[in-house]
């Protein structure tokens, strides 16, 4: 295996036997996952299937009860901070301080990651997510959709190798859904590995090269998007997850 963190690592995310139990309930049950560099995976599943827990475990926010996680060759148990340096996360919560402006939030998080040329990078990101004109307003005064865009910029502030997006389309209007697509697909910024969760089958097929279905904490289905059409995916989802998406 190549040295962790160097450019010639070809597996970006490697998950083995991840299980997370809350008491007797298993939110995740023996999940295995392997993603090559710049691969994009959409995780589908009904509410309560464990999508958010999966993202939280991948983000090192929740310790798994069993199993291992490697990101860009680094083991999350041995080198958690190396893993953290390489992942960017967008979740239900924006992770933004309401009292601070968009710019101040990005500068703060950028400093936590020790980014060089931070001012310029923050300016670039604010323009990228189309929030630049309102960069000095407090987050509390921005709409949910705008906050979500700032959250996207926040996840990119340290130029992570892997993006974890938990229902990133929350609150975004059509124009900014296109922006999200261009970010995820690596058109607006350099391509990177992406894992995203969504309820929307079309968006999953459109954005990601691979789709997976999570049901009751188990990864029950995986397929390449190219080999699927909407009806086939809908059918598989219905059969495995037991609920209409």
């Amino acid at each position: 295996m190549a040295d962790p963190g160097t450019d010639d690592v070809d597996t970006a995310v490697e998950v083995q036997g991840i299980t997370k139990r809350y008491g007797a309930q298993a939110a995740l049950d023996q999940v295995d996952l392997c993603l090559g560099c710049n691969e994009r995976l959409a995780v589908l599943g009904p509410n309560g299937a464990g999508k958010t827990t999966l993202i939280a475990v991948l983000a090192t926010l929740v310790r798994p009860s069993a199993g291992t996680l490697r990101v860009m060759g680094f083991d999350s148990a041995d080198a958690p901070n190396e893993v953290r340096r390489r992942i960017g996360v967008v979740a239900h919560q924006t992770y933004l301080y309401e009292e601070l402006s968009a710019r101040e939030n990005l500068l703060f998080y950028g400093r936590l990651y020790g980014m060089p040329d931070l001012e310029a990078r923050v300016e670039m990101l604010l323009k990228l997510v189309d929030i630049y004109p309102r960069r000095h307003e407090q987050i509390a005064n921005l709409s949910r959709g705008m906050q979500q865009r700032v959250a996207l910029a926040r996840a990119l502030v340290h130029d992570p190798d892997v993006l974890l997006l938990d229902e990133p389309d929350t609150g975004l209007d059509q124009a900014h859904l296109d922006l999200l697509a261009s970010l995820v697909q690596g058109r607006a910024i350099p391509a990177r590995t992406v894992i995203l969760t969504t309820h929307n089958l079309d968006r999953a097929l459109e954005l990601c090269g691979r789709v997976a279905v999570l049901a009751q904490g188990r990864l029950v289905y995986q397929a390449a998007s190219a080999a699927l059409d909407r009806a086939a995916l809908r059918d598989a989802y219905h059969r495995l997850a037991g609920a209409a998406p």
Binding site: R84, Q93, Y113
Partner: peptide, 14 residues
């Protein structure tokens, strides 16, 4: 409550 604690924990900080 505002979820910013998770934002701090995501950072590579000892």
């Amino acid at each position: 409550e505002r979820g910013t604690l998770a934002g701090l924990l995501l950072a590579p900080i000892d």
